[in-house]
């Protein structure tokens, strides 16, 4: 069986905040390997450090110990400029709150990562419209975020995250601000669009039902990142099943 290089590898990473008496250990010795095609759900109680873990994986923050590498390249020791370039090339990010720029239209928001990467405006807008079409936002492409519903904003944010066809899509509770109906709609879109335009997906979620449908379901606690006891339900898993999934 051919060996597949991991897309993302986190080894023994630990993170704490504060110092001295006020030191708070968020988690210790977290290992995570994500292969191309993986669809990983990370669950855990509030405050266990799920978002912090995503920040470390995206190279936005440094762990106290351990190493995080994307496509074999570690974040550590790189300048902020290098990290930004690497992140733009390989990672898409969906926030709990859409974080769309209010002055830009829907299509301009989606085209923003491409414009930051130096694409010509016309070409970037063309690609953005293609993405908006996939998430069903094309009819509202010229609208501004303030006129969109919560679900529409999150669909736009999803389109923005995948517009550069990232090898790794990181989602931080992407439906946390939505009602159940809109959350289901966005999750379905996420799975479809991610399969088409992203290499692998790591989702932090509280939605147990949706997490159970992912190929890999992990549980983050102070002790580290462990497979959930509910991992790998038969039926309709997203992403690589079984042994090639995340550990």
């Amino acid at each position: 069986m051919p060996t597949v290089d991991p897309l993302l590898k986190a080894e023994a990473i630990s993170k704490s905040f504060g110092s001295g008496d006020s030191l708070v250990k968020v988690f210790e010795s977290v290992d995570l390997t994500v292969l191309p095609g993986d669809f990983v759900a990370i669950m855990g109680p509030s405050g266990c450090g799920k978002s912090t873990l995503l920040h470390l994986l995206a190279g936005l923050d440094d762990p106290d110990s351990g190493v995080v590498a994307v496509e074999g390249r570690s974040w550590q020791g790189r300048s902020l400029e290098e990290r930004a370039r690497m992140r733009g090339e390989t990672i898409g990010f969906v926030f709990q709150f859409h974080h769309l720029l209010p002055e830009l239209s829907v299509e301009e928001n989606v085209a923003l990562p491409l414009l930051l990467a130096g694409w010509k405006e016309e070409r970037a807008l063309g690609e953005a419209r293609e993405c908006l079409d996939r998430v069903g936002m094309m009819p509202r492409h010229s609208a501004f975020p303030r006129t969109l519903s919560g679900g529409e904003r999150q669909r736009t944010a999803l389109a923005r995250a995948v517009v550069r066809k990232p090898r790794l899509l990181l989602c931080d509770e992407p439906t946390g601000s939505l009602d159940a109906a809109h959350a289901a709609e966005v999750f379905e879109l996420l799975t479809v669009v991610a399969r088409e335009r992203a290499g692998a997906v790591v989702v932090v979620t509280h939605d147990r039902a949706w997490a159970r449908r992912c190929a890999t379901m992990l549980h983050l606690a102070a002790g580290g990142l462990n497979p959930s006891v509910e991992d790998g339900p038969p039926g309709a898993p997203y992403g690589n099943p079984g042994p090639s999934g995340s550990r």
Binding site: A84, G88, H99, P113
Partner: peptide, 16 residues
């Protein structure tokens, strides 16, 4: 600053 942080996450270097 929130928008600036989003730009950074989207791949904008600090200089940009």
């Amino acid at each position: 600053a929130g928008d600036a942080a989003v730009l950074a996450v989207l791949g904008a270097p600090p200089s940009t």
